[in-house]
Design a protein around this nucleic acid. Structure first.
Lengths: 242, 242
DNA sequence: CCGAAACCTTGATTTCCGTCAAGTCTGCTG
DNA sequence: CAGCAGACTTGACGGAAATCAAGGTTTCGG
């Protein structure tokens, strides 16, 4: 608490504000000295929507915390078919430890702000600080759980269930106050129809048709193609296949 | 080396033999004292094919190393649709740290032998030994990579590509000597057609038809519905969608 | 060795979603 | 504000995989 205030009042970028929020970031696991060290070599960057952060088969020399925005992780087949294999929201950690080459592509889905540190620093700190490694293990386990949940959606749900599941997932991630008891929610879609299709293993036409159906059935409203209002979270849940 | 020999010659179950093989097990990360401790509380079990190891929403009080056989991890929708979200081969670690309740089902796909330890022991050792936590982080990252690879298969490949990808994956896991240069491979399918369908997000009929096609195209042979000979790994790779 | 059960294959038919092809809407630039 | 490009929607059509329905194999217990 005091530590963090000191750092921030010293004019060092507020590395950890958002990390704290949902306990998935890196910084919460570090002690005061380490935080100061890290802050010296870290840099905050604002990245426009659509920019590539990490290319496939590219050497990764830095790790980042996502401070705001949404990063999409994609994999492609040789003929161009693409699949989004994960979305990272603030305050997720971005980077694959212990592997120099990236097997996936990371791209800013919205405007994104990142706090990046050199690979070497993080790896050194990981050796020194079991707490940091512990934090990373927890995030990795959470991501594995999410990936496996999504495998059920990809393998076993219908197009209409997939789209409903997607909207629910976004609603819960964008606005974590959407608890199970809430009756409605509002958010901006962080993905285009093409991205949603790549996430769900569908085509953009099918995604569009399903959204239209949800609209005509009065489950959701969409303004300007982006701004979504879920009028009935419970009916959306019913359609998600659970 | 010496340590391990001491333990084994002392009549303590050979916890770590298979762990060593591919460096994904738990034991390699422990020191001599810890290994002896662990061996005292561990038990080796042989489990028949089809037995449930961990039920959904069940409290997990033990962790295990898979010593032989194949364990399937499944998730189900409320209406019974099922998806296999992972397969664990020896010497994988089985168990989800930091979570008392399991969100997935674990079932023996073949006859399985396990080496199990109480939850409390592992968690205590994890606190004491950063090396163990490091080992777990690495396995978890590997599983995450595998899950993401499989998401591409589920979301973007055709039925025929899915079946080819599956056969290749099994060939590489059952017999790790199948290197890229090999031209053929032989193995027993660890899964029934129904399991394969649940793994690939298909129906058993579609799986069966695709296997038949691979057979008539002379890419594979199948004896007794189980014993597979891949005559041309390269042609199988071509059909896997890469 | 027989019979039953579980597992697998094959064929006919249906359905959902992908493909192709116009349009419409939104936001941006000059 | 006009015009344009990119993103989205909608419709008609076709095809891949699901569903429905038999029939064939393998395995296992008696």
């Amino acid at each position: 608490m005091t530590v963090r205030q000191d750092i921030h009042s010293a004019g060092i970028p507020a590395l950890c504000q958002s990390c704290e929020a949902r306990h998935r970031g890196v910084c919460g696991a570090l002690d005061a000295d380490q935080l100061v060290d890290l802050a010296k070599t870290s840099s905050r960057r604002s990245i426009p929507s659509g920019a590539e952060l990490v290319g496939d088969a590219e050497v990764v020399d830095s790790y980042s915390n996502v401070l705001s925005g949404v990063v999409k992780l994609t994999k492609s087949l040789s003929d161009g078919r693409q699949q989004i294999v994960g979305l990272q929201f603030a305050p997720d950690f971005l980077g694959r430890p212990f592997k120099v080459e990236s097997a996936i592509n990371a791209e800013a889905a919205t405007e994104v702000s990142l706090c990046s540190f050199p690979r070497t620093i993080i790896e050194r700190m990981m050796k020194e600080s079991p707490a940091l490694e512990h934090r990373l293990l927890k995030q990795t386990l959470t991501e594995l759980d999410e990936a496996r949940d999504w495998m059920v959606t990809l393998g076993r749900k219908t197009a209409s269930e997939k789209v409903a599941s997607f909207l629910l997932m976004i609603a819960r991630n964008i606005d974590p106050t959407v608890d199970p008891a809430a009756r409605s929610a509002t958010f901006d879609l962080p993905l285009t129809r093409a991205d949603i299709a790549d996430f769900l293993g569908l085509t953009i036409e099918t995604v569009s048709r399903q959204l239209t159906r949800l609209r005509t059935d009065r489950v959701i409203r969409i303004d300007n193609n982006r701004h979504v209002t879920v009028d009935s979270l419970s009916r959306l849940e019913q359609r998600s296949g659970a």
